[in-house]
Each structure stands twice: as C-alpha cells, then as structure tokens.
Computed example of a mutant assay.
Amino acid sequence: MKIRLDEYAHLDTPLHRWEPRCKFIALMVLIFAFSFVYELRLLPVMLAVSGVLYIVSRLPFSYLLGRLRLPGLFFLMVAVLLPLFSGQTALFHIGPLIVRKEGCLELLLITVKFACILTTGIILFGTTPFLTTVKAMRALGLPFILADMTLFSYRYLYEIGDDLKTMETAMRLRGFRDRHPGNLGILASLVGTILVRSYERSDRVFKAMILRGYGQPVSFRDEFQANSRDLAGL
C-alpha cells in the first residue's frame, strides 16, 4: 500500500508555497468556522471558499473524489435517515414513509459542511508533505509525544494494510471465500492476528528507538520562516 495523502505536495502553487505554520492555523480555523455554521444562506459562501481554495491548489478532482468516497459512504448511511425522522412538515410520501422539510434542510446543511470541511482538510494535508505538517504542528507547540504518535500512526497504518493484503492473498490461495457465512470465525482470527502483529511491531520499533537515544524533544521553530505574504494569507 502506497502513501498517497501528500502525493501532490510537489506542485508549485501559492498554497504549496505557503509557510506550513500559517497554512495550518488558517485552514484549521476555517474548518472550525465551517463547523459552526447553521445559517443556510451561508452555504453558497462555504462552497465558494472551499472551491476556490481547491482550484488554487491545482489538486486533481479525482484526488478529491477518491478521498471523499469512503467517509461519504459512512455519512450517507446516517444522513439519509434525517428527512424521514426529523421535523414535522411533510413534503411528500414514499409509500408509508414521510419525507419532512426540516429533515431535508438539515441534510443539506450537514452535507455541505461535510464536503467543505473534508475538502479543506484535503487541501491542508495534500499541499504539504506530511512530515513537514507534523513539524509545523510541533513548532506551534504540540507535545513531541503527540507529534511522534501522529507520524507513526500514519506511517504504520500502511504497513498494517500491506500485512492484511498479504494475509488475505495467502488465505485465498488456500481456498478461503470471504462471503461464505461460516467464515466469521476465520475473519475474527484474521483481525486478532493483525492486532497482535501490530502490537509486536510497535514494541520492536519502540525498543529500537530507545537504543538509538529516542526521548529528547526536538524543536523545529528555527526551520520555518514566515514572510509578509504568509502572514497576509493568514
């Protein structure tokens, strides 16, 4: 499994050149601002702001869709129930089900907020190498243990994914069929094996780091220099 979150961090745009600390603060504040919006008349503004930022970033549209697909499926399973159970004003009937006006408006609000927040987050992490983003958070005062945990979680998530693919391939070669109802016990054993391997890997990595002197916090404040344009963007 390849790390693809920052695969377009090499592009040359104003957002890519923006000083990482200023970019992180600005876009995180924008994300929180989006989350506090409850007025429907502000939704076009949110869409316009996030859309312009994404166009300026020059990230491919397929890159955005690929990262919205999985969280969008989980969101859809919950959000589709809102028009049926939220509110009192009936718009129309679908058989025995009543589609309500208030629920539709809430669905519209949540959908736009969801899309704008995720788009802004993708811009934040897609226009800067992930390691640079972690260094920027460290320079802004994030405790070094949290910064390291963020970096290691991101790095080894893909290692665990590779292990899972290898084990699934080995199981299929031995005749395993995941859709068979009698295979739940085997799938549970697979999950347990992945968890045990993950714990053992983390223990080995931590011991190797301790032997190499890990534990002394490093400051990255001198690594970043913001100019007047960076501050103006902020």
Rank of each mutant, 00 (worst) to 15 (best):
M1T: 15
M1Y: 11
L5D: 14
D6H: 09
D6S: 15
A9K: 00
L11N: 13
L11K: 11
D12Q: 09
L15D: 01
L15T: 00
W18P: 01
C22T: 15
K23N: 06
I25C: 04
A26E: 04
M28E: 08
M28L: 11
L30M: 13
I31A: 12
I31Q: 09
F32T: 06
A33P: 08
A33Y: 07
F34R: 06
S35V: 07
V37M: 00
E39T: 12
E39P: 12
L43S: 02
L43F: 02
L43W: 01
M46L: 12
L47A: 10
A48N: 05
S57L: 01
L59A: 03
L59T: 01
P60S: 05
P60T: 09
F61H: 06
S62P: 01
L65V: 12
L70H: 13
P71F: 00
F74R: 13
L84S: 07
L84Y: 09
F85H: 03
G87L: 00
H93S: 09
G95R: 00
L97V: 15
L97G: 10
R100A: 02
R100W: 11
R100H: 11
E102S: 07
C104F: 10
L105P: 02
L105A: 15
L107I: 04
A115N: 07
A115H: 02
C116V: 12
I117V: 07
L118A: 03
I122N: 01
P129F: 01
F130W: 03
F130K: 12
T132V: 15
T133K: 11
K135R: 06
K135S: 00
M137F: 11
R138Q: 05
G141Y: 00
I145F: 04
D148R: 13
D148P: 06
L151T: 03
L151M: 14
F152Q: 05
Y156A: 10
Y158H: 08
D162H: 01
L164R: 05
L164C: 12
K165I: 04
T166E: 09
E168I: 02
A170F: 07
R172S: 14
R172Y: 10
R172H: 09
L173N: 05
G175R: 12
G175Q: 04
G175T: 14
G175K: 02
F176T: 00
R177H: 14
D178S: 13
R179M: 05
H180A: 08
G182H: 01
G182Q: 11
L184R: 06
I186V: 08
L187H: 14
L187K: 13
L190S: 08
V191C: 08
T193C: 14
I194K: 07
L195I: 05
S198D: 02
D203M: 14
K207G: 07
A208W: 11
M209Q: 10
R212Q: 01
F220H: 12
E223I: 10
Q225L: 10
S228K: 15
L231V: 05
G233L: 03
